[in-house]
Design a protein around this nucleic acid. Structure first.
Lengths: 263, 263
DNA sequence: CGATAGGTTGAGTCGCATCAACCGGGGTGG
DNA sequence: CCACCCCGGTTGATGCGACTCAACCTATCG
């Protein structure tokens, strides 16, 4: 859970954890997927992730580090649409041509699978296709949930909900240590993610902190009272399709996915 | 563009128009797709669309009528996440188990393709898979765009942007007549779609109307000044992946899709 | 040690929400 | 045929949540 460094023994631990949660459990399939990855690339902090110049619609995998996807308006306003953690699989369906950017919040190691290779891969390993479909569905579920936040939740609710989400997602790929996880977002980024102003974000975070619910300092999120956050935001982890309350990654079992579509 | 009635000569005109825009141009493929549809079902206005009891993840196609997808919070607040028009293809990736509902705004005729059939279909007709992928990508693009609206646009901007979007989408499936199209959303629904209160929605609509930009009465949206709306909201139709300014469906050409992923 | 970036705080304002009432039309039942 | 009601839209008044402007504070760093 520390900031990206080279403490990571295997480049793909997070990705593999993610694949497990996507119910891609067979070693055979996992190896096939890893095998299809291009060489890893590094992107330094505060830079944009760029495809390897190739055709724009390949699947990109974040092996290490954090980033966010954001869209900018012509007048400078911006909206962060996703917070991306290690193991996440991005752009499963081709990124639409809109003004999307993936911004590295920390040094990021990532890789991609080219269209061609992916097509073959999915053909030979239908379960990989299914897993990717689930990944996309999960992504959508988070999008929908954020839409609800921006549309109908108050500032504190948005923050509480987001903190819950980040923590549960992080835990699912073993990126938590106790009640802490990494959250390398500045308050400005947080504001743009939640559709709030910087100042109001600051005050709302302060409110949650002074209620003893969370702490957020030096890029580390500490959850002091998960239930409290959950109470405020009515957070229901169901949509994340992850093992419900598994305290450790060991006991979390892949959820009973309603056999999804390979596509 | 009238309210759903039986004036429609062929049940699938809108769907076919949509398929064309998804660059599924071959008659062969189109017929295969239509052939895989289950028997059409009707859902009366103000009811929920329900799957035919079967497994939850099949693709659903709206042949006639309008609906919206919405999510409810425990305390009664709700968020409308999508406005769905004839020809739209829903749930391409399995609907996540969250509290999603598809609500019929008018009488709706719809059909679905079962998972099994779909898998075979995509296998035999790879272009159908690609088209469905594009459909999902387009859906996502609209989601992202709405996220920006809710997060960073003012009430008037949201309305203007949404009106532009609806009009362009409707035009793409020949559901416009002149500068009018159907918009069977009450102001309450509109409010829940745009993350505003009913009252403020009303006043904002009034503002746009008194500036001579639009008119919205009896479920009919009339665009008096598209450029004005576009100016206010910085609407850029690019993300809709539709032919740019084609006044009629005849001249609109499928955009140069960056060959997407079949999956 | 100045410089810069990120976080914190105060004051004032505004957009939007909320509460509450009213209006007009279409349907319904007496 | 009219009285009634219900629903959707409209409007006014008021208050709050969130935004903006503008400092200031604190760390980290070259």
């Amino acid at each position: 859970m520390d900031h990206p460094s080279n403490t990571c023994t295997d480049l793909n631990v997070f990705l593999i954890a993610r694949l497990k949660h996507l119910a891609l459990t067979s070693d055979h399939d996992q190896i096939a997927f890893l095998g299809a990855l291009e060489a890893s690339r590094q992107t330094p902090s505060k830079r944009e992730l760029r495809n390897a110049g190739g055709p724009p619609s390949s699947v990109r995998v974040i092996q290490h580090g954090y980033c966010c996807r954001q869209m900018g308006l012509s007048d400078g306003r911006r909206q962060v649409t996703e917070f991306i953690i290690p193991g996440d699989i991005c752009d499963v369906r081709g990124a639409t041509a809109t003004e999307h950017r993936i911004h590295a919040l920390t040094p990021v190691i990532h890789s991609e699978v080219k269209r061609q290779a992916l097509a073959r891969l999915v053909n030979d390993h239908p379960r990989i296709g299914e897993a990717l479909g689930r990944s996309a569905a999960l992504n959508d579920a988070m999008l929908y949930e954020r839409l609800v936040s921006l549309g109908r939740r108050s500032a504190k609710e948005r923050l509480a909900h987001f903190f819950c989400e980040v923590f549960v997602r992080s835990r699912a790929v073993a990126l938590t240590r106790g009640s802490r996880c990494s959250l390398p977002l500045g308050q400005a980024d947080l504001a743009d993610l939640l559709g709030l102003s910087l100042v109001h974000t600051n005050r709302s975070v302060k409110a949650l902190r002074s209620e003893g619910l969370v702490q957020l300092q030096r890029q580390i999120l500490t959850i002091h009272d998960f239930n409290g956050l959950q109470e405020i935001s009515k957070f229901d982890p169901h949509y994340l399709q992850l093992g419900r309350d598994a305290p450790g990654p060991g006991t979390s079992r892949p959820p009973p996915f309603t056999a999804e579509l390979a596509m």
